[in-house]
Nucleic acid binder design. Sequence first.
RNA 1: GGAAGCGUGGCCGAGUGGUUGAAGGCAACAGUCUUGAAAACUGUCAAGGGUUUACGCCCUUCGUGAGUUCGAAUCUCACCGCUUCCGCCA
Length: 468
Amino acid sequence: MLDIQMLRNDLDAVVAKLATRKFVFDTDRFTALEQERKTVQTLNEEMKSKRNTYSKEIGVLLGQIARLSASEEFDQADFNKNQAEKLKLEVSEINAKIAYSEARLEEIERERKTLLLNVPNLPHDSVPAGKSEADNVEVRRIGTPRTFDFEIKDHTDVGAPLGLDFDTGAKLSGARFTLMKGPVARLHRALAQFMLDTQTEKHGYTECYTPYIVNDMSLLGTGQLPKFEQDLFQVSFGGTQTKAAGYDIYLKGSEDNPEDHKVAERNWYLIPTSEVTLTNTVRDEIVPLESLPIKLTAHTPCFRSEAGSYGKDTKGMIRQHQFDKVEMVQIVHPDKSYEALEEMVGHAEHILQALELPYRVVSLCTGDMGFGAAKTYDLEVWLPAQNTYREISSVSNCEAFQARRLQARFRNEQGKTELLHTLNGSGLAVGRTLVAILENHQQADGSVTIPAALRPYMGGLERISAAG
RNA sequence: GGAAGCGUGGCCGAGUGGUUGAAGGCAACAGUCUUGAAAACUGUCAAGGGUUUACGCCCUUCGUGAGUUCGAAUCUCACCGCUUCCGCCA
């Protein structure tokens, strides 16, 4: 979410920046809302102030009556009583007006919030301008793609004899699910373990185990909601959760409007990334300055509906409904976030280097960045069978965009609360790393060489093959 | 699934209808004292929003939402969360 003050004070500049991201900000609506809000809110608060003053006066008047009666000042006591009654009437009238202005104010607030929640972050000045993927800027290229003296296979063909089984995955669940069995399953596990160990032992992240199901507030905090609900899997309750309360009301024969007693619905979703859980650990928190930076990592499955990507990467395990990822999250002082961004890219790169995979680092252009990011680097790994680089990690600085939604703050040097900056990045996507290993390290005989760094996680194996 | 209890500021904890945004304590910050530190003493110390050139003033917030009332942390209802016991379960 953007800073509302910034929108008020510098609307034109904000709108121009948003335009570079292909976002059209509804300036007229915003301005109209702001204008009406100001009028209604001022009026509303004036009336409330009046109500509070009168109510206090009533309290004082009534409080005096006992004392006045005791000292037999009955006239004064009666006067107080009448005065109080008069004030009560007046407050009742004010209350009727408040009810009206309050309702209108709520409408305005709701619309403004919705408007604001759907506006993406502003790109950092260093982000290249551009419309699409094609305008991303390559920052560096590391490692040289291997030349093969045999006909190479893609990961599905390399993987099949090693236990990569899409047919069974489809039988169990449907398209975009995979069953792994035997050597490939072990390799997959080894990769995740290696990544997690590296991020904790070498790069100072704290290992976390997090829920895979989160509530809607968490997704609102990191920006997946309300705009991208179609990308998520919603979790429905199996049982009688909502029936119970409705049944209760039925039994009680209550005259109450059932709407008033509507059961709070549990809005649960599967996490699309553990960025959600790790970042939301600081939601509604004021963290002490000394605890910064907070560096968290977790290995979790990620669930994505992939709505809107029909026909894209349908073959193989590049794009799945369920995939594993080791995620890095940093929660930092605002002055340190760009330093942290570069550092995190390095942490992800370290994995690729250790696994002897050629890759390049790309700075995403304004038009290609994700909703919450102020700046994003993608790491793209070389896939020989596709003869191209494919995204395997994405590292973003969200600045205060998520923190503002999360109300995630720290106490600064002056003791004032201030919004944190949040960053997240994959370190790495496990499934796609598996793909890269299979394709880059395949051998003519159908076996796959295990990179030296990974061997301790594979019981010392130097290669895996169908033979075992 | 059944039963009981609890939810107050950064933390602990008082508060059961009227200047209570909330006693007291801890923590934090500033000052006095001290060679320095500690202790002691003194003072400051919630967040969000609105408005104002500014000092300031105002509104909201005691888990959440609704209700009763002139007035709610305090009374009523629903929901959420936590704790304990029983049942079930990995």
